[in-house]
Design a protein around this nucleic acid. Structure first.
Lengths: 126, 126
DNA sequence: TCCAGACATAGACGAACGTCGATGCATATG
DNA sequence: CATATGCATCGACGTTCGTCTATGTCTGGA
């Protein structure tokens, strides 16, 4: 039996009154953190455009040389965003001579894509 | 012909030298903002668990009465997070008597789900 | 060997975020 | 009507984020 008494607050009174059958298990905090990490990396317009740009380029790979101008940001800012995407595992870095080429890691999106396939509402609650 | 001269910076020299065929069109800023808004709403472990909880509950609907205790957060914090999800259009609010019942709006995830279906790397760059 | 260019890092700064306790508002119930 | 309760809002606080300028590091070419 699930008892909602973890955080010190006791909202036990509501447990009996309101929709008693709606109790679903919570996603483990670790899994939620992991998902949030990827979503955090996607939670910026600039990074979204960068990822999309890379994905549309040939082989999902491109060097970012002309992107600062196109996006209206400076080179350090671009480096910052690419670093974020890299930390989240969404792109891989490859140094070719003087330039860095970036490749989208589509497999890193599997987790979040699975999460977004939420079960369709089927039953009735209360 | 694409010329990367928007933001005031002129990185024109690199245009000729480095991977000239990799130029893909940029996602419009408005679309990127829209996507980022949803991703921002998902970029928090607590909200991820809330959304998953709602989706797993019967009919994708539940009142949030016993959630503060289960998640270890206070009632104002829960209200804050549900507000964020609501602002992003991910849940809908329905007041039944004294309680508020929340329903997942799976259709609101269509946009981000389409974005995450990035084209697989196919060609070769340079 | 030295210089120019591509990228990363450091430091700074304002804005937004996540959390809390305290309070206000609306509604069901005695 | 008075009271209790579920929820939203307010004000505050520390943390994280996004951006910039300035500087460092490494590589290729003259």
């Amino acid at each position: 039996m699930r008892r909602a008494t973890v955080g010190g607050m006791s909202t036990t009174t509501a447990d009996e009154v309101c929709c008693p059958g709606a109790g679903a298990d919570l996603l483990p905090a670790a899994s939620a953190d992991e998902l949030a990490l990827v979503f955090k990396a996607l939670a910026d317009p600039t990074r979204i455009r960068l990822l999309r740009y890379l994905a549309e380029s040939g082989a999902g790979t491109a060097c970012a040389c002309h992107l600062p101008g196109a996006l209206g940001i400076t080179q350090p800012t671009l480096s910052f965003h690419m670093g974020k995407l890299h930390d989240a595992g969404l792109v891989s870095r490859e140094k070719r001579g003087r330039w860095v080429h970036w490749t989208v890691r589509t497999d890193a999106l599997r987790g979040v894509r699975a999460f977004l396939d939420l079960p369709e509402p089927a039953g009735e609650c209360c």
